Computed example of a mutant assay.
Amino acid sequence: MRELQRRMRDELLNGEIFYSLREAQIIIESWRNHYNTKRPHSALGYCPPAPEVILQKVQGPTMH
């Protein structure tokens, strides 16, 4: 947890000025989502912790 807090401070909070609570919530959630799903981590061999899987949507029959 301390690593996450340090990273958040270094990569996000030290470089941002938030003008509202809502703006802070949106930016922090976006950073957290990126950190936990897309950002490569050295402990994982520089792979993202939860790589995104791109699924093609199968178009079923449509009713007219």
Score class of each variant (00 low, 15 high):
Met1Pro: 13
Glu3Lys: 15
Glu3Ile: 14
Gln5Ala: 10
Gln5Phe: 06
Arg6His: 09
Arg7Val: 07
Arg7Asp: 14
Met8Pro: 03
Met8Thr: 13
Met8Trp: 06
Met8Asn: 04
Asp10Gln: 13
Glu11Val: 08
Glu11Cys: 11
Glu11Ala: 12
Leu12Thr: 09
Leu12Phe: 07
Leu12Tyr: 08
Leu13Gln: 15
Asn14His: 06
Asn14Thr: 07
Gly15His: 14
Gly15Thr: 02
Gly15Ile: 01
Glu16Phe: 15
Phe18Cys: 01
Tyr19Trp: 12
Tyr19His: 12
Tyr19Val: 03
Ser20Met: 02
Leu21Phe: 04
Leu21Arg: 07
Arg22Ser: 10
Arg22Phe: 02
Arg22Gly: 03
Glu23Gln: 15
Glu23His: 15
Ala24Thr: 05
Gln25Leu: 09
Gln25Tyr: 08
Gln25Arg: 13
Gln25Met: 09
Gln25Trp: 02
Ile26Phe: 03
Ile26Tyr: 04
Ile27Tyr: 00
Ile27Cys: 09
Ile28Met: 02
Glu29Phe: 01
Ser30Leu: 07
Ser30Ala: 14
Ser30Met: 10
Trp31Ser: 01
Trp31Cys: 01
Trp31Leu: 00
Trp31Val: 01
Arg32Ile: 11
Arg32His: 03
Asn33Thr: 13
His34Ile: 02
His34Asn: 08
His34Arg: 07
His34Gln: 07
Tyr35Cys: 02
Tyr35Glu: 08
Thr37Ser: 04
Lys38Thr: 13
Lys38Met: 12
Arg39Trp: 12
His41Leu: 01
Ala43Arg: 11
Leu44Asn: 13
Leu44Ile: 08
Leu44Met: 12
Gly45Asn: 10
Tyr46Gln: 07
Tyr46Pro: 00
Pro48Ser: 15
Pro48Thr: 12
Pro48Phe: 00
Pro48Asp: 05
Pro48Val: 01
Pro48Trp: 04
Ala50Thr: 12
Ala50Ile: 12
Pro51Gly: 04
Pro51Met: 03
Glu52Val: 07
Glu52Asn: 05
Val53Pro: 00
Val53His: 02
Val53Ala: 04
Ile54Lys: 04
Ile54Arg: 05
Ile54Gly: 00
Ile54Gln: 00
Ile54Val: 01
Ile54Thr: 03
Gln56Trp: 01
Gln56Gly: 01
Lys57Met: 06
Val58Phe: 09
Gln59Cys: 08
Gln59Met: 13
Gln59His: 13
Gln59Trp: 08
Gly60Ile: 10
Thr62Asp: 12
His64Gly: 04
His64Ile: 02
His64Pro: 05
